[in-house]
Amino acid sequence: MSFVEYSEFIQEGDVAIIFLGHDSMMPIKVQQGAQTQTRYGVIRHSKDLIGQRFGTKVTCSKGGWVYVLHPTPELWTLNLPHRTQILYTTDIANITMMLELKPGSVVCESGTGSGSLSHAILRTIAPTGHLHTVEFHQQRAEKAAEEFREHRVGHLVTVRNQDVCKEGFGVTGVADAVFLDIPSPWEAIQHAKSAMKKQGGRVCSFSPCIEQVQKTCEALAGQGFEEISTVEVLLRVHEVRSITLPLPDFGPDKPLETPTDTRIPSNASVLCKTTTPPREMAGHTGYLTFATKPRIHCLFYLQFVYFGLIMWI
Protein backbone atom coordinates (compact mmCIF):
# COMPACT_ATOMS: atom_id res chain seq x y z
CA MET A 1 0.00 0.00 0.00
CA SER A 2 1.10 3.49 -0.81
CA PHE A 3 -0.86 6.64 -1.46
CA VAL A 4 0.64 6.80 -4.93
CA GLU A 5 0.45 3.13 -5.88
CA TYR A 6 -2.28 0.55 -5.53
CA SER A 7 -1.60 -2.87 -4.15
CA GLU A 8 -3.86 -5.87 -4.15
CA PHE A 9 -3.35 -7.30 -0.68
CA ILE A 10 -3.25 -5.84 2.81
CA GLN A 11 0.15 -5.97 4.44
CA GLU A 12 1.59 -5.23 7.82
CA GLY A 13 2.18 -1.51 8.30
CA ASP A 14 -0.46 -0.48 5.75
CA VAL A 15 -3.06 2.16 6.33
CA ALA A 16 -6.52 0.82 5.57
CA ILE A 17 -9.91 2.47 5.65
CA ILE A 18 -12.63 0.52 7.44
CA PHE A 19 -15.95 1.25 5.78
CA LEU A 20 -18.73 0.82 8.32
CA GLY A 21 -21.58 1.86 6.05
CA HIS A 22 -23.56 5.05 5.50
CA ASP A 23 -20.50 7.22 4.94
CA SER A 24 -19.11 6.09 8.25
CA MET A 25 -15.44 5.20 8.01
CA MET A 26 -12.33 4.97 10.13
CA PRO A 27 -8.66 4.77 9.24
CA ILE A 28 -6.51 2.07 10.83
CA LYS A 29 -2.88 1.12 10.81
CA VAL A 30 -2.54 -2.59 10.15
CA GLN A 31 -0.26 -4.26 12.68
CA GLN A 32 0.42 -7.89 13.43
CA GLY A 33 -1.45 -8.88 16.55
CA ALA A 34 -3.36 -5.60 16.87
CA GLN A 35 -7.11 -5.32 17.28
CA THR A 36 -9.56 -2.61 16.30
CA GLN A 37 -12.87 -2.03 18.00
CA THR A 38 -15.82 -1.13 15.82
CA ARG A 39 -19.49 -0.88 16.59
CA TYR A 40 -19.86 -4.31 14.98
CA GLY A 41 -17.23 -5.85 17.20
CA VAL A 42 -13.52 -6.51 17.08
CA ILE A 43 -11.36 -6.80 13.96
CA ARG A 44 -8.24 -8.91 14.47
CA HIS A 45 -5.55 -7.58 12.15
CA SER A 46 -3.52 -10.78 11.83
CA LYS A 47 -6.50 -12.98 11.09
CA ASP A 48 -8.99 -10.63 9.42
CA LEU A 49 -6.80 -8.22 7.51
CA ILE A 50 -3.23 -9.21 6.72
CA GLY A 51 -3.07 -11.12 3.46
CA GLN A 52 -6.64 -10.27 2.54
CA ARG A 53 -7.54 -8.40 -0.60
CA PHE A 54 -8.42 -4.72 -0.32
CA GLY A 55 -12.16 -4.32 -0.79
CA THR A 56 -13.11 -7.55 0.97
CA LYS A 57 -15.88 -7.92 3.47
CA VAL A 58 -14.66 -8.61 6.98
CA THR A 59 -16.94 -10.14 9.56
CA CYS A 60 -16.44 -8.64 13.01
CA SER A 61 -16.76 -10.48 16.28
CA LYS A 62 -20.36 -9.42 16.91
CA GLY A 63 -21.39 -10.78 13.52
CA GLY A 64 -21.64 -7.46 11.71
CA TRP A 65 -19.46 -6.84 8.68
CA VAL A 66 -17.40 -4.04 7.28
CA TYR A 67 -15.38 -3.44 4.11
CA VAL A 68 -11.65 -2.79 4.16
CA LEU A 69 -10.71 -0.19 1.57
CA HIS A 70 -7.43 0.77 -0.02
CA PRO A 71 -6.53 4.30 1.07
CA THR A 72 -6.77 7.07 -1.51
CA PRO A 73 -6.16 10.77 -0.93
CA GLU A 74 -9.92 11.29 -1.15
CA LEU A 75 -10.68 8.71 1.53
CA TRP A 76 -7.85 10.11 3.62
CA THR A 77 -9.37 13.60 3.40
CA LEU A 78 -12.54 12.19 4.92
CA ASN A 79 -10.72 10.26 7.64
CA LEU A 80 -7.58 12.13 8.61
CA PRO A 81 -7.00 13.42 12.12
CA HIS A 82 -7.75 17.14 12.00
CA ARG A 83 -4.96 19.30 13.33
CA THR A 84 -6.27 22.32 11.43
CA GLN A 85 -9.13 23.22 9.14
CA ILE A 86 -8.67 21.11 6.04
CA LEU A 87 -9.33 21.42 2.34
CA TYR A 88 -11.98 19.09 0.98
CA THR A 89 -12.07 17.13 -2.24
CA THR A 90 -14.21 19.60 -4.21
CA ASP A 91 -11.71 22.41 -3.75
CA ILE A 92 -8.78 20.03 -4.09
CA ALA A 93 -10.05 18.81 -7.46
CA ASN A 94 -10.23 22.33 -8.83
CA ILE A 95 -6.89 23.31 -7.35
CA THR A 96 -5.26 20.29 -8.97
CA MET A 97 -6.66 21.04 -12.39
CA MET A 98 -6.25 24.80 -12.32
CA LEU A 99 -2.64 24.51 -11.12
CA GLU A 100 -2.09 22.13 -14.04
CA LEU A 101 -0.56 19.46 -11.80
CA LYS A 102 0.58 16.21 -13.40
CA PRO A 103 3.29 13.61 -12.90
CA GLY A 104 6.61 15.39 -12.67
CA SER A 105 5.30 18.74 -11.43
CA VAL A 106 7.30 20.46 -8.71
CA VAL A 107 4.93 22.10 -6.26
CA CYS A 108 5.36 24.44 -3.29
CA GLU A 109 2.66 24.49 -0.64
CA SER A 110 2.08 26.40 2.58
CA GLY A 111 0.79 25.63 5.10
CA THR A 112 0.92 21.93 5.33
CA GLY A 113 -1.80 21.87 7.98
CA SER A 114 -3.26 18.39 8.33
CA GLY A 115 -1.92 17.27 4.96
CA SER A 116 -5.25 16.82 3.20
CA LEU A 117 -4.21 18.69 0.06
CA SER A 118 -0.61 17.47 0.32
CA HIS A 119 -1.69 13.85 -0.15
CA ALA A 120 -3.73 14.75 -3.22
CA ILE A 121 -0.84 16.74 -4.70
CA LEU A 122 1.58 13.87 -4.05
CA ARG A 123 -0.74 11.40 -5.73
CA THR A 124 -0.87 13.56 -8.84
CA ILE A 125 2.81 14.50 -9.17
CA ALA A 126 4.24 11.03 -8.43
CA PRO A 127 6.49 9.34 -9.40
CA THR A 128 8.80 12.07 -10.72
CA GLY A 129 7.50 15.29 -9.16
CA HIS A 130 8.29 16.83 -5.81
CA LEU A 131 6.37 18.71 -3.15
CA HIS A 132 8.03 21.35 -1.00
CA THR A 133 5.66 22.00 1.84
CA VAL A 134 6.20 24.69 4.46
CA GLU A 135 4.49 24.72 7.86
CA PHE A 136 5.33 27.28 10.56
CA HIS A 137 3.96 25.16 13.41
CA GLN A 138 6.78 22.82 14.45
CA GLN A 139 4.65 20.02 15.84
CA ARG A 140 2.38 20.01 12.81
CA ALA A 141 5.37 19.96 10.47
CA GLU A 142 6.87 16.98 12.31
CA LYS A 143 3.56 15.13 12.40
CA ALA A 144 3.03 15.69 8.69
CA ALA A 145 6.52 14.47 7.82
CA GLU A 146 5.91 11.36 9.91
CA GLU A 147 2.60 10.74 8.16
CA PHE A 148 4.19 11.08 4.72
CA ARG A 149 6.77 8.46 5.65
CA GLU A 150 4.11 6.14 7.00
CA HIS A 151 2.10 6.55 3.83
CA ARG A 152 5.20 5.77 1.76
CA VAL A 153 5.31 9.08 -0.03
CA GLY A 154 8.19 10.50 2.01
CA HIS A 155 10.55 10.38 -0.96
CA LEU A 156 8.32 12.79 -2.88
CA VAL A 157 8.08 15.51 -0.27
CA THR A 158 10.25 17.90 1.71
CA VAL A 159 8.64 19.34 4.82
CA ARG A 160 10.14 22.58 6.13
CA ASN A 161 9.32 24.14 9.44
CA GLN A 162 9.52 27.86 8.72
CA ASP A 163 7.37 30.92 8.17
CA VAL A 164 6.67 31.25 4.46
CA CYS A 165 5.91 34.97 4.75
CA LYS A 166 9.37 35.65 6.20
CA GLU A 167 11.59 32.84 4.90
CA GLY A 168 9.82 31.71 1.77
CA PHE A 169 9.75 28.12 0.54
CA GLY A 170 13.46 27.35 0.84
CA VAL A 171 13.80 26.75 -2.89
CA THR A 172 14.27 29.10 -5.82
CA GLY A 173 13.33 28.75 -9.45
CA VAL A 174 12.14 25.15 -9.26
CA ALA A 175 8.36 25.19 -8.86
CA ASP A 176 5.75 24.70 -11.57
CA ALA A 177 2.98 25.61 -9.16
CA VAL A 178 2.55 27.24 -5.77
CA PHE A 179 -0.36 26.87 -3.39
CA LEU A 180 -1.01 29.20 -0.46
CA ASP A 181 -3.42 28.54 2.38
CA ILE A 182 -2.23 31.02 4.98
CA PRO A 183 -3.87 33.94 6.83
CA SER A 184 -2.02 36.63 4.87
CA PRO A 185 -1.20 35.23 1.43
CA TRP A 186 -0.33 38.68 0.07
CA GLU A 187 2.80 38.64 2.20
CA ALA A 188 4.00 35.45 0.53
CA ILE A 189 3.38 36.33 -3.11
CA GLN A 190 6.96 37.57 -3.56
CA HIS A 191 8.28 34.29 -2.19
CA ALA A 192 5.90 32.34 -4.37
CA LYS A 193 7.21 34.18 -7.39
CA SER A 194 10.84 33.47 -6.62
CA ALA A 195 10.15 29.81 -5.88
CA MET A 196 8.71 29.36 -9.37
CA LYS A 197 10.53 28.39 -12.53
CA LYS A 198 11.64 31.22 -14.72
CA GLN A 199 9.49 30.00 -17.57
CA GLY A 200 6.52 30.70 -15.34
CA GLY A 201 3.82 28.62 -13.72
CA ARG A 202 0.56 28.73 -11.85
CA VAL A 203 -0.28 29.95 -8.38
CA CYS A 204 -3.35 29.46 -6.20
CA SER A 205 -4.39 31.06 -2.95
CA PHE A 206 -7.20 29.77 -0.77
CA SER A 207 -8.84 32.31 1.55
CA PRO A 208 -12.14 32.16 3.39
CA CYS A 209 -12.61 35.95 3.50
CA ILE A 210 -13.14 38.31 0.61
CA GLU A 211 -10.90 40.96 2.20
CA GLN A 212 -8.02 38.52 2.02
CA VAL A 213 -8.84 37.89 -1.63
CA GLN A 214 -8.74 41.61 -2.42
CA LYS A 215 -5.34 42.07 -0.87
CA THR A 216 -4.02 38.93 -2.54
CA CYS A 217 -5.26 39.98 -5.97
CA GLU A 218 -3.63 43.38 -5.55
CA ALA A 219 -0.34 41.77 -4.56
CA LEU A 220 -0.54 39.33 -7.50
CA ALA A 221 -1.17 42.14 -10.00
CA GLY A 222 1.63 44.16 -8.39
CA GLN A 223 4.06 41.28 -8.86
CA GLY A 224 3.22 40.97 -12.54
CA PHE A 225 1.00 37.87 -12.36
CA GLU A 226 -1.49 37.45 -15.17
CA GLU A 227 -4.88 35.77 -15.70
CA ILE A 228 -5.88 36.50 -12.11
CA SER A 229 -9.20 34.84 -11.46
CA THR A 230 -11.19 34.14 -8.33
CA VAL A 231 -13.78 31.39 -8.09
CA GLU A 232 -15.89 29.68 -5.50
CA VAL A 233 -16.81 26.02 -5.92
CA LEU A 234 -19.38 24.02 -4.02
CA LEU A 235 -20.50 20.43 -4.25
CA ARG A 236 -24.18 19.72 -4.25
CA VAL A 237 -25.11 16.24 -3.09
CA HIS A 238 -28.32 14.68 -4.37
CA GLU A 239 -29.67 12.02 -2.05
CA VAL A 240 -31.51 9.37 -4.02
CA ARG A 241 -34.91 8.59 -2.55
CA SER A 242 -37.96 6.53 -3.42
CA ILE A 243 -40.92 8.66 -2.57
CA THR A 244 -44.61 7.97 -2.58
CA LEU A 245 -46.86 10.78 -3.67
CA PRO A 246 -50.57 10.40 -2.93
CA LEU A 247 -52.95 11.26 -5.76
CA PRO A 248 -55.84 13.57 -5.06
CA ASP A 249 -59.38 12.33 -5.55
CA PHE A 250 -61.60 14.86 -7.33
CA GLY A 251 -64.43 12.45 -7.57
CA PRO A 252 -65.83 11.16 -10.85
CA ASP A 253 -65.68 13.70 -13.69
CA LYS A 254 -68.97 12.45 -15.10
CA PRO A 255 -71.71 10.54 -13.43
CA LEU A 256 -70.85 6.89 -13.23
CA GLU A 257 -72.77 4.88 -15.74
CA THR A 258 -72.51 1.69 -13.87
CA PRO A 259 -71.68 1.45 -10.24
CA THR A 260 -68.90 -1.10 -11.06
CA ASP A 261 -66.92 1.41 -13.14
CA THR A 262 -63.29 1.57 -12.08
CA ARG A 263 -62.14 4.82 -10.64
CA ILE A 264 -59.08 5.77 -8.69
CA PRO A 265 -59.54 4.81 -5.10
CA SER A 266 -59.04 7.65 -2.67
CA ASN A 267 -55.86 6.10 -1.26
CA ALA A 268 -54.06 5.90 -4.66
CA SER A 269 -50.45 7.01 -4.84
CA VAL A 270 -47.48 7.07 -7.19
CA LEU A 271 -44.00 5.81 -6.40
CA CYS A 272 -41.15 7.78 -7.89
CA LYS A 273 -37.40 7.79 -7.75
CA THR A 274 -36.03 11.22 -7.18
CA THR A 275 -33.37 13.11 -5.29
CA THR A 276 -33.51 15.49 -2.40
CA PRO A 277 -30.91 17.98 -1.32
CA PRO A 278 -29.44 17.47 2.14
CA ARG A 279 -31.03 19.60 4.82
CA GLU A 280 -27.76 21.47 5.24
CA MET A 281 -24.68 21.68 3.09
CA ALA A 282 -21.31 23.43 3.06
CA GLY A 283 -22.29 26.82 1.70
CA HIS A 284 -18.84 28.31 1.82
CA THR A 285 -15.35 26.92 2.15
CA GLY A 286 -13.16 29.61 0.69
CA TYR A 287 -12.36 31.61 -2.39
CA LEU A 288 -9.82 30.17 -4.78
CA THR A 289 -7.68 32.76 -6.50
CA PHE A 290 -5.60 31.53 -9.43
CA ALA A 291 -2.99 33.37 -11.45
CA THR A 292 -0.30 32.69 -14.01
CA LYS A 293 3.28 33.78 -13.57
CA PRO A 294 4.51 34.79 -17.00
CA ARG A 295 7.96 33.79 -18.17
CA ILE A 296 10.63 36.20 -17.01
CA HIS A 297 12.06 37.97 -20.03
CA CYS A 298 15.80 37.91 -20.41
CA LEU A 299 16.47 41.49 -19.45
CA PHE A 300 14.46 41.39 -16.27
CA TYR A 301 15.91 38.07 -15.51
CA LEU A 302 19.52 39.19 -15.74
CA GLN A 303 18.75 42.10 -13.45
CA PHE A 304 17.40 39.62 -11.00
CA VAL A 305 20.51 37.48 -11.20
CA TYR A 306 22.81 40.44 -10.75
CA PHE A 307 20.81 41.60 -7.80
CA GLY A 308 21.13 38.14 -6.35
CA LEU A 309 24.89 38.17 -6.87
CA ILE A 310 25.26 41.54 -5.20
CA MET A 311 23.21 40.38 -2.26
CA TRP A 312 25.36 37.29 -1.94
CA ILE A 313 28.65 39.17 -2.05
Binding site: V213, L234, R236, Y287, T289
Partner: peptide
Protein backbone atom coordinates in the same frame (compact mmCIF):
# COMPACT_ATOMS: atom_id res chain seq x y z
CA UNK B 1 -20.01 1.43 -1.62
CA UNK B 2 -19.80 5.17 -1.01
CA UNK B 3 -22.23 5.86 -3.84
CA UNK B 4 -22.75 9.56 -4.29
CA UNK B 5 -24.73 11.56 -6.81
CA UNK B 6 -23.42 15.09 -6.99
CA UNK B 7 -23.10 18.16 -9.12
CA UNK B 8 -20.66 20.98 -8.91
CA UNK B 9 -21.47 24.68 -8.59
CA UNK B 10 -18.98 27.29 -9.64
CA UNK B 11 -19.10 31.07 -9.40
CA UNK B 12 -16.51 33.50 -10.71
CA UNK B 13 -15.73 36.78 -9.00
CA UNK B 14 -14.72 40.20 -10.16
CA UNK B 15 -12.10 41.39 -7.70
CA UNK B 16 -11.27 45.08 -8.02
CA UNK B 17 -10.64 47.69 -5.32
Amino acid sequence: VSLRLTDSWIRHYQVLP
